[in-house]
Amino acid sequence: MFQTLAYYSSVFHKEFVGYTSDKLQKLGINFGSVFFLIYVGNHPGCTPSELTKALQMDWGHSQRSVTKMVNEGFMTKDKCGRIYHLNLTEKGQQAFQVSHQVFFDWDKEKLKALTDAECRQLFELLQKAAMGKKDVKDE
């Protein structure tokens, strides 16, 4: 077994995608839709441009995904002047709730062997690694 962050990231990603897909397919959404639902659910009335930038997505992929979600009844895309605004439909709100909760449920399952203090330490270290900086005291 590899002792690298890349290895464990890959394992967790694969497991999370599988777990999430099982929970969400009942609602008719896939893993790729989760982040769009969560962003629009947390930022009602956002523009497609804001969504694309926040999710760091390719413009074309983002627009195809939004169009698909509109066509499937999860989201609305309403024009106000020259700008479109995105909102969740009732169906989208239900999917948002499930999508949002799946993150917490998966964490609870995966982290059940850790104490609260170990969980806090793990998240602090992951945040530090994600930022790519050493603490000032470490330099």
Rank of each mutant, 00 (worst) to 15 (best):
E50P: 01
T52G: 08
T52M: 10
K53L: 14
A54V: 10
A54Y: 03
L55N: 02
L55S: 09
M57V: 06
H61D: 13
H61N: 14
R64L: 15
R64K: 10
S65P: 00
S65K: 07
S65D: 07
V66R: 00
K68T: 09
K68M: 12
V70M: 04
N71T: 09
E72F: 09
E72S: 14
G73W: 07
G73D: 11
F74W: 02
F74T: 04
F74D: 05
T76F: 04
T76D: 12
K77S: 15
K77A: 15
D78N: 13
D78E: 12
K79I: 13
K79N: 09
C80R: 07
C80A: 14
I83Q: 05
H85D: 09
H85G: 07
L86W: 00
L86H: 00
L86C: 04
L86K: 00
L86M: 02
N87S: 14
N87D: 13
L88A: 08
T89F: 01
T89W: 00
T89P: 04
T89G: 08
E90Y: 08
K91W: 02
Q97S: 10
Q97D: 15
Q97E: 14
V98H: 00
S99G: 15
H100G: 02
Q101E: 13
F103S: 06
F103W: 04
F104D: 10
W106G: 04
D107N: 06
D107P: 03
E109H: 04
E109W: 01
E109S: 14
L111Y: 02
A113V: 14
T115R: 04
T115K: 02
D116I: 09
D116P: 06
A117F: 05
E118S: 03
C119K: 11
R120C: 15
Q121G: 07
Q121K: 06
Q121R: 10
L122H: 02
F123T: 15
